[in-house]
Amino acid sequence: MSTRPCRSIFRPCIDLHEGQVKQIVGGTLSDSNPAALRTNFIASQSPGDFARLYKRHDLRGGHIIKLGPGNDDAAREVLAAWPGGLQIGGGVTDTNAQEWLDAGASKVIVTSYLFPSGEFSLERLQAISRTVGRDRLVVDVSCRRRGDKWLVAMNKWQDVTDMEVCKESLDLLSHYCSEFLVHAADVEGLCQGIDEDLVKRLGEWVTLPTTYAGGAKHIDDLSLVDRLSGGKVDLTYGSSLDIFGGTLVKFEDLVQVSYDPWKACH
């Protein structure tokens, strides 16, 4: 039995695609080849139903991600169901960020806007940070592995940028935001385990609250992430979770360990 409570926590998510809550294998999203898309789950419930579920259990700090066009109405439904409870990302820029905060988002999440033509723009980061305030901005450094490095991937994880996820880049970004979100796109939706190397490195590098998503398949992955990251990284579950059609992890069990952090680290 652990001698300390688990510091890493469960962060919920709502992925929206074509106006519905879905769980998608991250590497299969493609504008040029839509037929390649692999979907693990399409919800029969409304997007707002998931927000109400999270609200009922007071699970804060989760994220809504709009994967492509046609998701704005669904996103507004989610935010109206729990104002101030969830962050939102997907197509966020300095011109529409305040609109999403006004609609009820606790914070806005930004990626692609920061990388015009795939190259990082400090000016754009500074602009959106000034617009919404550092405390209401999350930078999404979702990434793909290239050898022994991880490079930020944008545009629904299709395009690899020029930014390496490392201590230097995270230190730079941390001056302008209050959190990081990291999808490991290569393992997203596969339910084959987290990228342990990436989680360990994030624990060494980050100085801000950070949420990792990708590959979680067992409730014990929460304690694994806690151990690997020294409690600095939180964990999102997707396709493995029963509320998303999975059979590997029960939502109620995650809720229970969220209320009992000693139980999470066993």
Score class of each variant (00 low, 15 high):
residue 3 T to N: 14
residue 4 R to W: 03
residue 11 R to N: 13
residue 11 R to G: 12
residue 13 C to H: 06
residue 18 E to L: 12
residue 19 G to D: 05
residue 22 K to T: 10
residue 23 Q to V: 08
residue 24 I to G: 04
residue 30 S to I: 11
residue 33 N to D: 10
residue 33 N to R: 14
residue 33 N to M: 05
residue 38 R to S: 10
residue 40 N to M: 04
residue 44 S to W: 03
residue 46 S to R: 15
residue 46 S to V: 05
residue 47 P to C: 09
residue 50 F to I: 04
residue 52 R to D: 09
residue 53 L to M: 15
residue 55 K to V: 08
residue 57 H to T: 00
residue 58 D to Y: 13
residue 61 G to D: 08
residue 63 H to L: 06
residue 66 K to E: 06
residue 68 G to K: 14
residue 71 N to F: 12
residue 73 D to G: 02
residue 74 A to I: 03
residue 78 V to Y: 02
residue 78 V to R: 00
residue 81 A to M: 11
residue 81 A to P: 07
residue 81 A to T: 11
residue 85 G to K: 02
residue 85 G to N: 05
residue 85 G to M: 05
residue 85 G to Y: 01
residue 88 I to A: 00
residue 92 V to N: 05
residue 92 V to L: 08
residue 93 T to E: 06
residue 95 T to Y: 05
residue 99 E to L: 01
residue 99 E to V: 08
residue 100 W to R: 10
residue 104 G to T: 10
residue 106 S to R: 15
residue 110 V to T: 15
residue 111 T to G: 04
residue 112 S to C: 11
residue 115 F to V: 09
residue 115 F to R: 05
residue 116 P to H: 10
residue 117 S to T: 15
residue 118 G to W: 09
residue 119 E to T: 12
residue 120 F to Y: 14
residue 122 L to Y: 07
residue 127 A to W: 00
residue 132 V to K: 04
residue 138 V to R: 03
residue 138 V to G: 06
residue 139 V to L: 08
residue 140 D to L: 02
residue 141 V to N: 09
residue 145 R to M: 02
residue 147 G to F: 05
residue 151 L to T: 12
residue 152 V to S: 11
residue 153 A to C: 04
residue 155 N to K: 15
residue 157 W to H: 11
residue 161 T to A: 14
residue 163 M to R: 13
residue 168 E to I: 09
residue 171 D to I: 00
residue 176 Y to K: 10
residue 177 C to S: 11
residue 178 S to Q: 08
residue 180 F to K: 01
residue 180 F to N: 04
residue 181 L to K: 01
residue 182 V to T: 04
residue 185 A to N: 14
residue 188 E to V: 03
residue 190 L to W: 00
residue 191 C to L: 02
residue 195 D to L: 03
residue 203 G to M: 03
residue 213 A to G: 14
residue 213 A to C: 13
residue 213 A to Q: 06
residue 214 G to F: 03
residue 215 G to S: 14
residue 217 K to V: 00
residue 218 H to K: 12
residue 218 H to C: 09
residue 218 H to W: 06
residue 221 D to K: 10
residue 223 S to E: 06
residue 226 D to E: 12
residue 227 R to L: 07
residue 229 S to V: 12
residue 230 G to T: 15
residue 231 G to R: 09
residue 234 D to Q: 07
residue 237 Y to W: 11
residue 239 S to A: 15
residue 240 S to C: 12
residue 242 D to F: 06
residue 242 D to L: 08
residue 245 G to K: 02
residue 247 T to A: 01
residue 248 L to R: 12
residue 250 K to W: 02
residue 251 F to K: 12
residue 251 F to S: 02
residue 252 E to C: 00
residue 252 E to M: 10
residue 256 Q to D: 13
residue 257 V to H: 00
residue 262 W to R: 15
residue 265 C to A: 15
residue 266 H to R: 15
residue 266 H to Q: 14
residue 266 H to T: 11
